[in-house]
Amino acid sequence: MNVFRLTGDLSHLAAIIILLLKIWKSRSCAGISGKSQILFAIVFTTRYLDLLTSFISIYNTSMKVIYIGCAYATVYLIYMKFRATYDGNHDSFRVEFLVVPVGGLAVLVNHDFSFLEILWTFSIYLESVAILPQLFMISKTGEAETITTHYLFCLGLYRALYLLNWIWRFYFESFFDMIAIVAGVVQTVLYCDFFYLYITKVLKGKKLSLPA
């Protein structure tokens, strides 16, 4: 555990909580892509199946349980409790174009051809692109609520901090995981355009809106 890994995890946790609170307090999931949230629920489920087979630490186990619980709670709020506010017409990204290639890649490129390992690999690849339906929705509507941009910033920052964590671990622990690193770079790059808008607009008190 190093400072980048810990702040990365906390940033990830903050993102998840911000989104849950936003939906809960406003009683609305307007502007939120339910498809991205389903993908994240799949990501956590397929990655954390090792909860049943291996114990790493209290920290590790509790964070996994919290992430999974929050992911399903978010999906429940969007598709059940506040379904009437869900903007399905604008959430039109075709997720099969992500899930199918990512599934194929996980079978072809992995550390070990075993059931749990392929699911772990699938979750790493899927996470790297799971935000695309949300970004697609924002580009379609041309705007995002400020609280939604805080969520996206924390979510993007988390993987960027993990990149620093992997650099740290490479130098000080001789540890590296090429699958996680490559997917993590892809994931972080996808946020770069958003980071630019967040810093130049949202942090200066303006609403995030895209030119028509």
Partner: peptide, 10 residues
């Protein structure tokens, strides 16, 4: 460097 064996990250 070693390739990852156990996944200790989240």
């Amino acid at each position: 460097a070693d390739e990852a064996a156990a996944h200790d990250e989240l």
